[in-house]
Amino acid sequence: MLQQLTVLFKDHLSTDPTVYCTDKYTVYQLADGLRFGVENTILTTREADLLDLLAERVVTSSSDQVTSWRHRLERNQAEEPSPFRMIHFLFEQLDERTSEDLQQLLYSFFHSSSLIIPLTANRLVVIEREETVPEEDLHDFFTALQSDFLIDGKVLIGQQRKSGDIATQFRLEQAALREIPLLHIERFLPALTRLVLLSAEIRHELTQRFITPLEYESRETIHAFCRANLNVSLTAKHLFLHRNSLQYRLDRLTEQTEIDIRSFEGATFLYTLLLVA
């Protein structure tokens, strides 16, 4: 597609970030993540509308903080020492006015310590820092948004972490967001479990992150616990362990993976990864 666009716009199109980062360009992102900019002076309204159908328009911001965070999320890695959780929003085509109104609602809904990061004209992420919004409230808020704005969209509730690589977390959760059905709000673990089954690349990455570092004892515990339908007593019996010893193993697994294996979603996620490892 980029080749055809280059033929159409010729020298007025650039894939060089040092060129299209200025206000003279409107920036777009293709489905494969490639970005390009087209000079505003030659871009007609009809061409802009067509490009909006073919690619996502990247939102530029006058806020240094927002720009800095966006660049940070787009790196290969970015360690975050403080607790965080990301809430990802993706909507059908939004006009500029609706997008601005939507951002104002998000600012009023989330805690003041949260950051609202517009990514494209239709996609944004909220980074929760000191306080997080209850999931029930998020469900109600998402329903109200669709009703009040008459727009379709989807939301991914990201993993709550004490610290870690926020850039990698962002990339994985954005990939999971794309596979969520429209009109749905979904948690991190079910979304990533679906992604494990759809993407060999993500499957390998998640296996390397969550399963490969585990010793045999931990893998054995995951397998036995899931086979026993998350029944602690039955699992302890199958592994010839005292119940307290098994509880210690389960606590250790949660500490190692940051995934609560005692929950159905956590157990499903780790068991699926174990089977494909």
Score class of each variant (00 low, 15 high):
88 H>S: 09
88 H>Q: 13
89 F>M: 07
90 L>R: 12
90 L>Q: 08
90 L>I: 00
92 E>M: 03
92 E>V: 01
92 E>D: 02
92 E>I: 00
93 Q>K: 07
93 Q>D: 04
93 Q>L: 04
93 Q>R: 10
94 L>H: 01
95 D>V: 06
96 E>D: 09
96 E>F: 10
97 R>T: 06
98 T>W: 08
98 T>R: 14
98 T>E: 01
100 E>R: 14
100 E>S: 12
100 E>A: 11
100 E>N: 02
101 D>Y: 14
101 D>L: 15
101 D>G: 04
101 D>H: 15
101 D>I: 12
101 D>Q: 13
102 L>R: 13
102 L>V: 03
103 Q>N: 05
103 Q>Y: 13
103 Q>D: 05
103 Q>I: 05
104 Q>I: 03
104 Q>C: 13
104 Q>F: 09
105 L>N: 05
106 L>M: 12
106 L>V: 04
106 L>I: 09
107 Y>H: 10
108 S>K: 15
108 S>P: 07
108 S>I: 11
109 F>Y: 10
109 F>I: 03
109 F>G: 04
110 F>V: 00
111 H>T: 09
112 S>E: 13
112 S>A: 05
112 S>F: 11
113 S>Q: 05
113 S>V: 09
114 S>R: 09
114 S>H: 12
114 S>F: 12
117 I>C: 03
118 P>V: 01
118 P>W: 01
118 P>A: 03
119 L>F: 10
120 T>Q: 13
120 T>A: 07
120 T>W: 08
122 N>Q: 14
122 N>D: 15
122 N>A: 12
124 L>V: 01
124 L>N: 02
124 L>K: 02
124 L>S: 02
125 V>C: 06
125 V>L: 08
127 I>G: 12
128 E>G: 08
128 E>K: 11
128 E>T: 02
128 E>L: 13
130 E>W: 10
132 T>W: 05
132 T>H: 11
133 V>I: 07
133 V>K: 02
134 P>E: 08
135 E>L: 08
136 E>K: 13
136 E>W: 10
136 E>A: 03
137 D>R: 12
137 D>C: 02
138 L>N: 04
138 L>H: 11
138 L>M: 15
139 H>M: 08
139 H>V: 12
140 D>L: 14
141 F>S: 01
141 F>L: 10
142 F>C: 09
143 T>I: 14
144 A>E: 15
144 A>T: 08
147 S>F: 06
147 S>E: 10
147 S>T: 05
148 D>C: 09
148 D>T: 08
148 D>F: 04
149 F>Y: 14
150 L>D: 14
152 D>R: 08
154 K>F: 07
154 K>Q: 08
155 V>I: 07
156 L>K: 00
157 I>N: 01
157 I>T: 01
157 I>V: 12
157 I>E: 06
